[in-house]
Amino acid sequence: MTEHRSAGERPWFSHKPGVEPQGAERRDNGAGNLWRKCEGCAEILHVPDVEANASVCPLCQYHFPLDWRSRVRLLVDEGSFEETDRGISPQDPLKFFDSKSYRDRLEETQAKRAGKDAFINGRATIEGRPIWLGTFDFQFMGGSMGSVVGEKVTRLFEYGAADRAPVVIVSASGGARMQEGILSLMQMAKSTAALQRMRRLGVPFVSVLTHPTTGGVAASFAMLGDVILAEPRALIGFAGPRVIEQTIRQKLPPGFQRSEYLLDHGMLDAIVHRRELRPTLARLFGLLTDPA
């Protein structure tokens, strides 16, 4: 049991004009739909209430998925985030084609999302401390890691190593991106090798796992934080539940591969309520890097 499991009491956030999530990233089902059912407690919730509560159900603390802009706003000091490496775009090295070509799929997704791919990185401060922050955009092809995501994660660790500032990565990813084939697998090696270099310099990496973090992202840097935090009830694992069910031909136990299960099995340091992430990170960086 950690102190972070129960909900905090104080309000987390005050609305500021000009930093609203873009229309495409709002999760409500269109204009005028102000109510949604909580996936945790099945209560009907007032959408603005949920959004004002960091997309957490005010009744049962169920954590709804959070778009990356809200994530950044929630995690770092107001106005401190400065995006880097915006100019990197994916290519189609395999000329991959399923029901449509990868190139078309990318263009369609890019038109709907804010960025060129599924990862956003940049510098910021947390309670005044400079950090490097990376966060996945799960809405971009399931947050899958291809060459662009791998390159940006790698650079993040290189930046952290260069200026000795801690790195925070908020993961939400289905794993390696199938459409870039073996090159996606190699991003696991590339990013993890960069992390190892940064670690050896004594620069902290805190990995924040959110729903869901599986496959090649879990099996590389995400499970290698100096400290690993997770949001409540996030699905975290190597193989997806469906793959496991098909392999062992039986139903999985309830709660399997959820944050609480991983904490019990020694795979996480703590489960942290979304509202508590920022102060928790600040505390950890202080404990790890303040002069003795």
Binding site: D85, G87, I88, S89, P90, Q91, P93, G146, S147, V148, G150, E151, T154, E180, L183, M186, Q187, A189, K190, A193, A194
Partner: peptide
């Protein structure tokens, strides 16, 4: 490994 991957910038 650092050089593996394809993207434009």
């Amino acid at each position: 490994v650092r050089h593996l991957g394809r993207f434009s910038e």
